[in-house]
């Protein structure tokens, strides 16, 4: 009985240890000059002329010589 429970505990511990060693199989292969990170949502916003004019207006309001 004791032998069975020991074997059970050992098996559970072994499975837990092996599970802890798991690594996701996806590998990022780098290519020179190619960005493979997360896409920045700001990139799309900055392409719009509306944001550009907003930033220009901000510049004129805050930073021009007085």
């Amino acid at each position: 009985m004791i032998g069975h429970s020991r074997r059970f505990v050992f098996t559970v511990a072994l499975l837990a240890a092996l599970g802890g060693c798991y690594e996701p199989p996806e590998v990022t292969l780098y290519e020179p000059g190619v960005y493979k990170g997360t896409t920045d949502p700001l990139l799309e916003k900055l392409r719009s002329g509306e944001r550009q004019s907003q930033l220009l207006e901000r510049f004129k309001t805050v930073q021009t010589d007085r």
């Binding site: 700001l42 916003k45 900055l46 944001r51 907003q54 930033l55 220009l56 901000r58 510049f59 004129k60 805050v62 930073q63 010589d65 007085r66």
Partner: peptide, 28 residues
């Protein structure tokens, strides 16, 4: 901070008291 997404420019330049530091469209 992401001030650009808020329509603002970098704070370092915006608060420069002598307007020595400028940040914005290079042409302007």
């Amino acid at each position: 901070a992401n001030r650009i997404a808020q329509g603002k420019l970098p704070l370092c330049a915006e608060m420069c008291s002598t307007k020595a530091l400028l940040a914005g469209d290079g042409d302007v």
